[in-house]
Design a protein around this nucleic acid. Structure first.
Length: 595
DNA sequence: CTAGGGTTAG
């Protein structure tokens, strides 16, 4: 049932192919850039781009320079040291920066810039605790953190999705008079609000920033436009585009990437070529990142042929597709079940040097699992070690799920032990997969044991896990235990969500506990959790089956009023009811309206 | 010499 109530309802795979023909023809995508003539020859470019190890060479160089600097007397200026640290940080050698800084500190070298770089490195390594320790060092060394330091810390919290703490630090910085936020500080927090899906708070903050005399720039607008597009509020995003242009702020390739993504996920395919034309006419050239977004959007809707034509176009424009491009394409083929094509893309990645990565493997393994080719999936999994690639938690979860769905529980359990032995930690999804399977095969005591194992480990089972178990218990007829688990949620600081309520209501209905089910659907509403279409269908079916016609009628009315409609099996029950003349004309009328 | 924006898998 959990599957039926599906979480992210993003349309995937075949369904859309059946219902919609792509609006945009290949010619539209191809024809776009024909006006642009001069292109550099590509073979040389390709060689340049594939410099085997640019990172490590400059890393070695930097380390050598640093070593000499440490041994030079008198010591060189702190600025020289800090410059190199900054460059290493830009090359993402965060832990290297940190260890070099520790050596610097022993020699007494370091200023506010140095410390800010170090804070940023800890943030990038998701080590906010250490970032805050470095903030403490400012005061110990008699240095003042500035707006950049605070912005870096705010960004660190946001990277860990700790948006409330980010906002608190922002206020603290202002209220305690440390420093005034600038456009970067505001934009950082705006991003945090967007990440939480609170785009209206993000826009409010943008307005507040402008009122405080701090002008928005292209990055600030891009951040909000992107947030809106991800929330499918593309109309609002386009309005902000007009607004920024009216202020004389020119959009760039980031702006267009977000907008194209937004329109594509709405299925408004004709907008992508239009926007591409519009940007090219303003001399903004699409880059690899933008093309990757387009390829992925097309693939997610099953339009792999079109995606492939975009890839052709990239190559024509001397933008080399990267592993991300090919991984998206592969996933597109997997979604359609065209596994031979997916494998071809995979082989292409392999042939292009070592462009395959763990993610490529995960995509292919998932494709095989979803199309019931578990042995193929297993073969691909075995192949990873030959390429010295280490399977991660996602790899194991995918394959474990595949084995479970194929009814091969023993192999699934073997993999579970193997992942722990290999040091890949099971996460909440791992447990969800196993619990779901144990529930489906009625092994409830094992499931409860696994729950206890989770509770004992560092992983805190979330509401999803409890919902799975409540559902399992209900289906096994253990309503009392299910109810007990449900009631215990609040003492575990967990809020039931719409699925938890629905699962519990379903259990109560199946157990004939109609009054209690009726009470629960009211209670969820009172607690700010509205029933969805699934909840209504389940409870209405439950009521009809228990011959509670008047309760069912009331809920049908409520459901219709809220714009939901009955699904096939509920409809069947209602039609049957009507044919047996069990209900009054009012319900008949109501039901006609709902169809 | 330090901070902010767009992409892929369960």
């Amino acid at each position: 049932m959990l599957k039926m109530m599906g979480s992210s309802s993003r349309r995937r795979g075949m369904s859309c192919l059946l219902h919609s023909t792509p609006v945009v023809s290949l010619n539209n995508y191809f024809g776009l850039f024909h006006s642009q003539s001069s292109k550099p020859s590509k073979s040389q470019l390709g060689n340049l781009v594939r410099d085997p190890e640019p990172k490590s060479t400059s890393l070695e160089h930097a380390l050598k320079v640093f070593d000499e600097m440490f041994n030079t007397r008198p010591l060189l200026s702190v600025v020289r040291f800090t410059q190199i640290l900054g460059n290493l940080a830009k090359m993402k050698h965060y832990s290297v920066v940190i260890s070099l800084y520790k050596q610097m500190r022993m020699l007494g070298i370091g200023n506010a810039y140095t410390l800010t770089i170090v804070i940023n490195c800890y943030c990038r390594l998701n080590q906010m605790g250490f970032s805050l320790c470095v903030l403490g060092q400012f005061f110990k060394l008699g240095l003042q953190p500035d707006v950049t330091t605070f912005t870096t810390l705010i960004n660190g919290f946001i990277r860990e999705e700790r948006v409330a703490e980010a906002a608190r630090l922002f206020s603290k910085m202002v209220e305690e008079g440390h420093c005034e936020p600038n456009v970067v500080t505001f934009t950082t927090l705006v991003k945090g609000f967007c990440m939480m899906g609170n785009t209206s708070a993000a826009i409010e903050l943008l307005r507040k920033m402008e009122k405080s005399g701090c002008k928005a720039d292209v990055v600030a607008y891009n951040t909000i436009i992107d947030g809106l597009c991800k929330d499918k509020l593309v109309v609002d995003a386009v309005n902000l585009l007009s607004e920024m242009i009216s202020w004389g702020i020119a959009p760039n390739v980031f702006t267009y990437t977000s907008l194209i993504y937004g329109f594509c996920t709405l299925g408004e395919w004709e907008e992508a070529p239009r926007l591409l034309k519009e940007m090219v006419s303003q001399n903004i050239l699409p880059d690899l990142h933008l093309f990757n977004v387009l390829v992925d959007a097309l693939c997610k809707e099953g339009m792999v042929v079109e995606a492939k034509s975009v890839v052709q176009m990239m190559i024509q424009r001397d933008i080399e597709p990267d592993p991300i491009t090919y991984n998206s394409l592969m996933d597109g083929y997997c979604l359609r079940g065209e596994m031979d094509q997916a494998k071809k893309v995979f082989d292409l990645l392999v042939s292009k040097g070592s462009m395959v990565n763990v993610r490529s493997y995960n995509i292919l393994i998932n494709g095989y699992c979803k199309h019931k080719k578990i042995d193929e999936a297993n073969k691909v999994f075995q192949d990873m070690s030959r390429r010295k690639l280490v399977p991660n938690t996602i790899t194991y979860n995918t394959l474990i799920d595949g084995f479970c769905k194929a009814g091969r529980i023993q192999e699934a359990e073997k993999l579970f032990s193997q992942m722990q032995a290999c040091g890949q930690h099971p996460d909440l999804r791992t447990y969800a997969i196993l619990l779901d399977d144990l529930c489906n095969s009625q092994q409830l005591s094992t499931a409860l044991e696994l729950l206890r194992e989770m509770e004992a480990s560092k992983l805190e089972p979330g509401i999803v896990i409890y919902t799975l178990l409540i559902d399992g218990l209900c289906k096994a007829g253990e309503i009392q235990s299910a109810r007990h688990l449900f009631c215990g949620l609040s003492s575990r600081q967990l809020q039931p969500d719409v699925r938890t309520y629905t699962v519990m209501i379903n259990g109560l209905c199946n157990g004939g506990l109609i009054v209690e089910a009726d009470k629960l659907i009211r209670e969820m509403e009172e607690r700010g959790c509205s029933p969805n279409v699934c909840t209504y269908n389940i409870i209405i079916r439950g009521f009809i089956k228990n011959n509670e016609i008047s309760r069912a009628t009331a809920l049908i009315q409520q459901m219709v009023e809220r714009g939901f409609s009955a699904d096939a099996s509920t409809t069947e029950l209602i039609v049957d009811l009507l044919s047996r003349d069990k209900v009054d004309q009012a319900l008949l009328q109501l039901f006609k309206h709902s169809l």
